[in-house]
């Protein structure tokens, strides 16, 4: 067994110890995870972004245009200094403006129009009829300009039924996901660490 496996197994057991009750071993493993994650993110960001996109172009290739995003990025850190914090708003304005400009048309096309088209497609199959019914009744639940009575009330109630189905399916999948994480760790402990299973 290599040292990495041993450390991983011990840290897994530290985390599992929380199932009995909160304790210093659990806290140590938790803080270690947070610290390493942040440290790793900083190192990777510097290695893959700051160095090849800012340092090398400016100092090796003399591309001074790259200083503009570098300066705007630096402005973001000025939020920590109240007197200069206003400068960070310039960077934020650019991020929000460009971000919204790029994402709004794309999201409209991919998530609204394409989904509407799919919901209004061929109704030859029972599945498509159910999808269309679910879309209409769920939307009717979120129509608040009229009291939910009569036909609108019935439609909204059916919409609630479909939403409950969605929440139930999502919760089921969430349970499945969490159990899988436990299985993964159990496979590691029983296999790589203890060698009981192959």
């Amino acid at each position: 067994m290599d040292l990495g496996t041993l450390i991983a197994a011990i840290l897994t057991l530290f985390i599992f110890s929380f199932l009995y009750k909160d304790n210093p071993f659990y806290k140590f493993a938790e803080y270690l995870l947070v610290g390493i994650s942040v440290g790793y993110f900083i190192v990777i960001s510097i290695k893959t972004t700051v160095v090849p996109k800012l340092i090398f172009p400016v100092f090796r290739e003399g591309d001074l245009l790259c200083l503009i995003p570098g300066i705007l990025g630096f402005f973001m850190f000025l939020r920590f200094f109240p007197k200069l914090a206003w400068l960070s708003r310039i960077s934020m304005a650019l991020i929000i403006g460009a971000g919204a400009g790029v994402s709004i048309p794309a999201m409209m096309q991919a998530q609204i129009f394409a989904q509407m088209k799919a919901s209004m497609g061929s109704y030859a199959s029972i599945n498509n009829i159910i999808v269309a019914l679910a879309v209409i009744t769920t939307l009717s639940y979120f129509f608040f300009s009229r009291e939910h009575k009569g036909a609108l009330g019935t439609s909204a109630k059916i919409g609630v039924f479909f939403m409950m189905l969605f929440f139930g399916a999502t919760f089921g999948y969430t349970v499945m996901s969490r159990v899988t994480l436990l299985i993964g760790r159990a496979q590691f402990l029983l296999g790589d660490f203890l060698g009981i299973i192959k």
């Binding site: 794309a106 096309q109 991919a110 394409a114 989904q115 969605f166 399916a169 999948y173 969430t174 969490r178």
Partner: peptide, 29 residues
């Protein structure tokens, strides 16, 4: 939003189960 809608590229998703219900509408469409 960007690779499929803008560049008409084929995409497959291998996701954790907790994300499954979010992606089924896009599989359907």
């Amino acid at each position: 939003n960007y690779a499929v809608a803008r560049y008409n590229k084929d995409l497959a998703v291998l996701a954790t189960a907790v994300m499954a219900t979010s992606f089924y509408p896009f599989l359907n469409s």
